[in-house]
Design a protein around this nucleic acid. Structure first.
Lengths: 220, 220
DNA sequence: AACTATAGCAGACAGATGTCTTCAAACAAG
DNA sequence: CTTGTTTGAAGACATCTGTCTGCTATAGTT
């Protein structure tokens, strides 16, 4: 045993409950939840060691109970570290929050973000990034300077979608309009002009807008 | 092999590079990054299968390179699924998203939320709840129907804060103003009236606003 | 008190996982 | 062209990990 638990004679503590009924299960639940929220799923032995039990089978039975209660889920493919948070407690994913994005360096910016924002797991982490809003061009849509938009990477979008496109080699957020077979990028502020790009380089579609009235997102 | 890679004769493709120098390493990096950001660390065999290699040792060598470059880290305790991203990651918390909140039932609503939204760990999860915006009274502040506000429970707030208060036994979001020792709840829309409550029941202060342009938050 | 259910221990075993060695093909440099 | 480096395959092995069986102690119920 690696955990410093004192050597006991065979069977010495078998069956011993240390606290009120249900306490161990609650302790296990909180430890697993914390580990899963941290993005670091625990093995059964790690759980065992953390809560001070000696047998993995005891942990398993508690986990079985938590799964029956719907508080945890298990990936049944036979892989290791298979616990999951269930709906409606989605496993959060972290989306890279980028600084300035210019033509050609999106991949680099994603690999070296200035921070991260957590999103619900239903959005599946691949293909998302987050950007700061810096201007007033989308004010009418309730998107203000200092907001963060979460963007799903895609190279096409529908009429009416709010998108991130490259204009003059700089990323900009606008509403996409299709007029007579042509693409237009519309601001949501009469003080800004409609942009008609010669060719559209679309980085993605805005799927979420966030405003932080106090503090900044994690890691910034 | 589980991945559907076609059976090849022994050694048939040994040493074959399929793309430009460095491409495989980049592909591996992106896959690992995405998995780690999703809170689901990959095994070496999962990486191997995802990128279409046949030997785990090849993956290991690429991972070694990524570790030398500082782009990934490895927990060296001998555990499985030991890759890490090098920056410290914010640890998200889950905030309950409530349905309708009326006087007297906030605690019940928190215990039985209709879903959860992940927030950055810097906000320390306890004491937070989230609410839907249903009306247009805060339109001028860029807070629209269908938005979700994240609220920190507190019974006092400063002049200018956006707060959640009980008015006519119903939770409402307004901007708090202090005038001549008196509290006023201001809309951010001229079509709505200023509210001057006889006594203020403040549920908390809005710390974040979120708009979901596609889908809803987890569990809803 | 007796009985039952719950909780925990110990040990064994199968499969997942990481790591190492050797060999071979492809590519880059001189 | 030759040589050295990089890249990828195959196979073996040690350890981690999940799961199962059997036993025991404790707590709850009748």
């Amino acid at each position: 045993m690696k955990s410093g638990i004192s050597k006991k004679r065979k069977g010495e503590s078998a069956g011993r409950r240390r606290g009120p009924r249900g306490e161990m299960r609650t302790r296990i639940y909180h430890y697993v939840q914390q580990r899963l929220l941290a993005g670091d799923p625990p093995s059964v032995r790690e759980i065992r060691d953390h809560v001070g039990l000696r047998a993995t089978q005891t942990v398993q039975r508690h986990l079985d109970g938590l799964i029956v209660d719907g508080r945890l889920e298990r990936d049944t493919s036979g892989r290791s570290r298979a616990l999951r948070l269930p709906q409606p407690q989605p496993q959060p994913s972290l989306v890279p929050l980028l600084g300035r994005v210019q033509a050609g360096v999106l991949t680099t910016a994603i690999e070296d973000p200035e921070g991260f924002v957590p999103v619900s797991g239903v959005r599946v982490g691949d293909g998302l990034f987050a950007l700061w809003i810096r201007g007033l061009s989308m004010e009418g849509a309730g998107i203000l300077p200092g907001d963060v938009v979460i963007v799903r990477k895609q190279s096409d979008a529908n009429d009416g979608d709010i998108v991130v496109a490259l204009v003059d080699d700089e990323a900009t957020v606008k509403r996409l309009r299709r007029r007579d077979g042509r693409v237009e990028l519309h601001p949501e502020n009469p003080d800004f002009d409609v942009i008609v790009p010669d060719s559209l380089t679309l980085l993605g579609k805005v799927v979420e807008v966030r405003r932080f009235l106090e503090g900044a997102p994690g890691g910034v």
